[in-house]
Amino acid sequence: MGKKYVYSFKEGNKDMRHLLGGKGANLAEMMNMGLPVPNGFTVTTEACNRYYEEDGKLWDELLEEVNEHIKEIEEELGKKFSDLENPLLFSVRSGAVFSMPGMMDTILNLGLNDKAVIGLAKSTNNERFAYDSYRRFIQMFSDVAMQIPKVLFDTVLDDVKAKKGVKADTELDAEDLKEIVEKYKVIYKEEMGEDFPQEPMKQLEYAVGSVSESWNNPRAKIYRKLNNIPDDLGTAVNIQSMVFGNMGETSGTGVAFSRNPATGENKLFGEFLMNAQGEDVVAGIRTPQPISHLEDVMPEIYEQFLNISENLENHYKDMQDLEFTIE
């Protein structure tokens, strides 16, 4: 058995940030506290450094390790990665030891393709949601992993909304979203000279490679120089099973602090959106609700979130900054 480059969340803890990055170490810590963290695994900071030694390629043993961890999650959740019946999808996030600007953004819904989107629609009985997730994935993957300008996709989305005479993305139906998906694939092909990748492992390889590449992009390099952060720390990659905030009006997503960061008042502070995915809250397309309003909309969920927040504060002995999804 060669060197270990991939750790499941169950194997890590908060003291392993040099290996698992800040995000990976804390996801593992929360998992082991028994909190509802969607299962996943972390590709270590050492793998990022080796990626550069391998001339920007992922090597076979690493991909085998990743495959093993995918199989474990498939068994646990009773889903198959990118399946035609009940697909398992992943989010991919970078996670450096110290948080820094310029690092790769998140990719959500990885594993969707022309077939898995039908499986997602079937397994959830929600075609609109499935195609909404697919159009988001194509745009994020293209922007984040392939550096295709986001504005090309936003223009298509705005045109379809204008044609239909609606303002919000949530007013588009499944047929509108299918049309957007097709147009997004055309943009990808025009920009990249090849079709949008349909093979899920290929999608994952591109995404993991992009995180490693983002470690050495100009913004990250300048930031490290200004803050005396060593160049050889590398970044980890967190691959986590998806939960969906965009399944309808009983799902949502938000960000919160365990207390008010400006005054220190011991009261949840933050905002959320129903029927949304993470980037909607920060993108400014729709106006989020204050977190206190969640108590009116979903009192049990609010209570659960409040308990988790207090639990984390007691555990870490500090104010917490939380991202959450309600499925």
Rank of each mutant, 00 (worst) to 15 (best):
F305R: 02
P261T: 08
S94A: 12
K10E: 15
F305N: 04
S94C: 08
Q289M: 14
L120K: 08
A220I: 01
I148Q: 07
N67L: 09
R50F: 03
A207F: 09
M146C: 15
S8R: 12
M140H: 00
D132F: 09
L294E: 04
Y223K: 01
P197R: 11
N109D: 14
E175Q: 13
Y184T: 04
N216S: 03
Y302Q: 04
S309Y: 05
A262Y: 13
I73M: 03
E313V: 14
L172D: 07
M298T: 00
F41R: 11
F305Y: 12
D105I: 00
L84E: 15
D176S: 14
M146H: 11
E271H: 14
E205S: 12
L226I: 05
L233A: 02
F244N: 13
N26G: 06
V211Q: 02
L62Q: 09
N238C: 15
K267N: 12
M103G: 00
L120A: 09
F41D: 05
E46Y: 08
G12F: 11
S258V: 01
E11I: 03
I222L: 13
Q147Y: 11
D173T: 03
T250P: 00
V237N: 03
R224V: 03
F153P: 02
L62C: 07
N26Y: 08
G252Y: 06
A207I: 10
A47N: 08
G56T: 04
K23E: 10
K221T: 14
L294G: 00
V237Y: 05
K71D: 08
G264I: 07
C48E: 01
L84R: 13
V43S: 05
S91H: 03
T44V: 07
E127R: 12
E249L: 12
Q289I: 03
P230C: 04
A236T: 04
G111W: 06
N86H: 11
R128V: 05
K267M: 12
V186E: 15
D55F: 01
M140F: 00
V282D: 09
V156F: 02
M247A: 15
E265Y: 03
V160S: 07
G193F: 11
I308C: 01
M274C: 10
P299N: 10
A236H: 05
Y302I: 05
L268G: 13
S292W: 01
N217M: 05
G119F: 01
P288D: 13
A28G: 13
N113H: 10
G248T: 12
M247I: 14
Y302R: 06
F305P: 00
I291R: 10
I148H: 11
A25R: 03
N275Q: 06
S133P: 04
L157A: 09
S91K: 08
S142V: 10
R17L: 11
M103D: 01
E205Y: 02
R136L: 00
P290T: 07
M30Q: 13
H18K: 15
M31R: 15
M192S: 11
K122N: 14
A207T: 07
Q198D: 10
L62M: 09
D55L: 04
F272D: 04
W215N: 02
R286S: 14
F196G: 09
Y7S: 07
A96D: 06
G165R: 04
R219C: 01
G234R: 08
